[in-house]
Nucleic acid binder design. Structure first.
Lengths: 147, 147
DNA sequence: CCATATCGTTGGGACATCCAATGAGTTCGG
DNA sequence: CCGAACTCATTGGATGTCCCAACGATATGG
């Protein structure tokens, strides 16, 4: 017979949530060595990618609230990892860029994060890891594209 | 070349986290119809399973902080879904049990939660859903059993 | 020129997660 | 038998995520 708890614990939501929590913890611990939080790392990476980019763009790409983006960028700027310059043609926007220091920290953080992820996926074979990623990607895209 | 952002967003941790967030939202919305949060549902189910159980046990099984367990049980008890009785042989413990009302609510919540999960997994075929669950289960068990 | 919208920012609130500490009670070793 | 160490429930506080609302400054379309 199936118990109530098993019913919940076998629910995809529960399972995904637990795995996500442990993975999040691993990566957070790893990049804490560089003094960054998860979102700081993500914002730094996104900034590195999209060259000079506005805060609103960063928020949309990473699903981060504009309010929180302010705090994250304040922190990154205080550590000298990013720069906020006035946008040349639009007085409302900020053009955020990565400093050389930021690029260096980013490189180290990315390596740490990938190591943590490898550890999380260690129980699976390479093929299984690819399967998992493929399935999750489809769920993610479907959730992003409501209808 | 692989961009920094892609490097992060293709990280299993990121993907799992996003999927977990949307799944959590779906189930939370579904269960809200019964006036319960995710953790309330989980605690109610675990209490139903393990008969009279202590709060510390519940916390360990569901990975919930003792402090939060207090609040959850307060809420469930205020709604008449669970009972806190003094433990017969150990003065420190509470023996938590489910009331008939609690059992009824639990049954409805379980159905709602399963429907929401079905929606989350809708983009996948039945076989793919099983694959995903199997992979996640292995990751979860490995994370629970550190060494 | 004016209505509308966006941008960065500040403020507040709802929740979830985690760590620290306390008083009551239990257990175990000497 | 008694004290040390532990567990239990509870409270307090910190942080992080997400949502909603507002504001002044600025852009844009009609």
């Amino acid at each position: 017979m199936t118990s109530d708890l098993q019913r919940i614990q076998s629910l995809p939501t529960w399972l995904i949530g637990r795995v996500a929590a442990s993975g999040r913890g691993m990566v957070a611990d790893a990049i804490a060595a560089e003094g960054l939080k998860l979102m700081h790392h993500a914002v730094l990476a996104a900034t590195a990618d999209y060259g000079p980019v506005t805060q609103a763009d960063l928020g949309r790409r990473l699903a981060v609230d504009p309010k929180d983006m302010v705090g994250i960028l304040n922190h990154l700027q205080a550590k000298g990892l990013v720069l906020r310059a006035p946008h040349p043609s639009d007085g409302r926007k900020n053009a955020v860029t990565v400093t050389p220091d930021g690029a260096a920290v980013l490189a180290r953080c990315a390596a740490l994060a990938e190591a943590a992820n490898a550890e999380l996926l260690a129980p699976l074979t390479r093929d299984e890891q690819k399967q998992l990623m493929a399935l999750l990607t489809r769920l993610h895209e479907a959730a992003d594209t409501p209808a």
